[in-house]
Structures are given as C-alpha cells and as structure tokens.
Simulated assay, not measured.
Amino acid sequence: MSYTFPFDLNQPSEEDIEWQTHEETNDHHKKRAKLSCDSKMQLLMWLLNNQIEGKLKHGEIQEVANLFNVTRRTINTIWSTARRKKTTSQPYNISIKGHNSGRKRIQVQPNVITKISMRECIRDLELQLKVSSTTTNIMIKRGLIKPHTNPLHPALKEANLFQRVEWVLNLLMGDTPTIIRQYNPMYNFVHIDEKWFYLSKKSQRVYLERNEKGKYMTTKSSKFIPKVMFTAAVARPRFNAENECTFDGKICIFPFTYQEPAKRASKYRAKGTFVTKIVESVGKKKTRNMLINDIIPAIMQKWPITEGHNIIYIQQDNARTHICQDDPEWQQVHHKGTLHSFWCNNHQTVQI
C-alpha cells in the first residue's frame, strides 16, 4: 500500500519562504566607512581635474560616488564647500570633524579625593565619590587615582641615625680623597638572620590523581599551630674570570630543634627512640650555641680556601637574643687561633 502526501518534508513551507522574504526586504544598508583625509584629498583632486570653468559634466558626481563608495550627497557637500571657499578666497579644510557622542565624562576634582579619610579600598572611594566601581577602575587606569602602599618605617632617633651613618662611613676604603669614595666590596661579610615558620597550615592546596584521596590532617588546635625558627647564613658569591660561580655564598640553614628519647612506646616508635622536637622559646643562650657550634664550623668548611687568612665579619640585626663581640663565651672562640678570625656585632660588624 502506498501513501501520497500533499507536501514534501524536505522542502520549506510557504510560511518559512514568506518569513525569509520579509526579513530580506527589511535588511538595513551597511554603514559606509567614513572618508579619511587622504581619500578626501583624492576625491577633491578628481573633481578639480574633471571640472570645466567650475562646473562638472552630467553623471560625474555619480561616477565619483561609485568610485569612492560614498553617496551623491557626500560628493555634493564636498564640491559645494570647495566652490564656496574658492569664491571667498579661503583655504579648504579637509580634516575630519569628530562628533562627540555618549554621555560626558565624569569629572572628579583632585581636592575631593584628598579630603576623603577612608581610602583603603575601592569600595570606600565609590561611597565617598558617589561613583560606580567601573568608573573608579577607569580613573585608576587613566592615572587620576594612584594606588599606593604605605610601609611601616622604624621610628629612628638621632642617635640611631648617627650610628647608621657612622657604620656606612666605616665601609669607605682608602685615606686619600680620590680613593675614599670606594666602598668595601664586603666579600668577607656573612649575613645572619632568623625566621619563624609554622609546622602546618590551616588549609593546603594540592593536586591529586583522579582516584587518589586527600590526606586527612589533624591538630589539637588550629589557633595555636607550633612554630619552628630557622637561622640562615649567606655571603657574597664569587665568580672567576670566565664568569663561572666558584662560591655561591649559601653557607647554611639550621633549625632550632633538639632530640630526646621517647618517654613511652607507641605504634609509631619504641620507647627510648630519639625524636626531634622544636625549641619553642629561643633566647640568647640558644643563639649563642647555634652560632658557636653550628654556624662557625659551617663557615670554616665552606669558605673559599684561595682567600687565605682574613677577618670574617658576621652581620646581625638588633634582636635582643643576638650576642655582641664582648660576650665572654664568644671571646673564647674568637681567640682560638683558627685559620680565620671571626668578628661578631649587632647591626654593625662581628669578627669571627
């Protein structure tokens, strides 16, 4: 049994054809590009070359309009303006007139910004200036508003300032005015500093395999995470004539830890196994032992042998736990008569 249908499913319906025809008739013309100064000059020269006694032949306006892809009205405007300027003996300006469109730019006076007390974030500026966040960001990009970070500087007294200037002047080399302008290259200086680090973080981001499970982290209190202090010693690196590094200046990094035997057994270790624990309070005694027993031997081991016997200055900051050159236990190490002489000083120079 065969069936016949009054229409073809593969052909569009009459309604679709009528709708497409309706859309095609309502298409707008494409916007023509504006004439540039060069195109405007070429168009005017074409008109001047083809004119006869100030008049154009029939059909030349349409011809030049098709040639430059503009309307007849544009050609008439240019030609009539050129004839009018010629009659009054005035120069013809071919520059393009820019048309201002859109709303006016929001203007903010500089003294208004300086009078605002709370300026720590963009939201404060929005509320005080009564503008949107987009306008505020645009003003920052234009340079009308300048982001600035206020660092916290130390409150130095006159004695501190004189001490700093004196320390800098002591680094000058030479006795004559021509040589005294050169500074000590500080190849025999070792800089020491400490830093606290948390043993763990409240949250840690890692990347796992698709079927891998994340580590389950626990702690007794997330507000009191144990910290450990590290001390580092660095010096100025050395390079040979071929610009090869012969000494990188990285001497050592030591943690303030100690070992003691475990008091009781557990599933992780047996009783009496030595475990590493952190020093929770670092005082002058701890820093002295670290300097004498760990840092000085590391300097002696890694210091370049080619420099021979010299004085090595240990540079420290003004922490209260640091020792000075006149420390009694430090003086015993200083007078041992090793290959190098060490000098220790707080924010100045310390001889080892």
Rank of each mutant, 00 (worst) to 15 (best):
141 K>N: 07
142 R>D: 12
144 L>G: 09
146 K>A: 04
147 P>W: 05
154 P>F: 09
154 P>V: 12
155 A>G: 00
155 A>I: 10
158 E>Q: 10
158 E>M: 08
159 A>N: 10
159 A>S: 14
162 F>H: 15
163 Q>F: 08
165 V>K: 14
166 E>L: 10
167 W>V: 13
168 V>C: 09
170 N>D: 12
171 L>P: 05
175 D>K: 13
176 T>R: 13
176 T>M: 11
178 T>E: 13
178 T>N: 09
179 I>W: 05
181 R>T: 10
184 N>E: 06
187 Y>E: 10
187 Y>V: 11
192 I>C: 01
193 D>I: 03
195 K>Q: 00
196 W>A: 03
200 S>I: 13
207 Y>Q: 10
207 Y>W: 07
208 L>K: 08
212 E>I: 14
213 K>P: 05
215 K>Y: 05
218 T>D: 10
222 S>Y: 04
223 K>A: 03
225 I>S: 03
225 I>M: 02
225 I>V: 15
227 K>M: 02
227 K>T: 06
229 M>N: 06
230 F>W: 09
230 F>E: 05
230 F>T: 15
230 F>I: 15
232 A>Y: 03
233 A>D: 01
235 A>V: 04
236 R>L: 06
236 R>I: 11
237 P>K: 14
238 R>H: 04
239 F>W: 08
240 N>E: 01
241 A>T: 12
242 E>A: 09
243 N>T: 11
243 N>E: 12
244 E>F: 07
247 F>D: 08
248 D>G: 07
248 D>N: 12
248 D>A: 05
251 I>K: 00
252 C>P: 02
255 P>A: 07
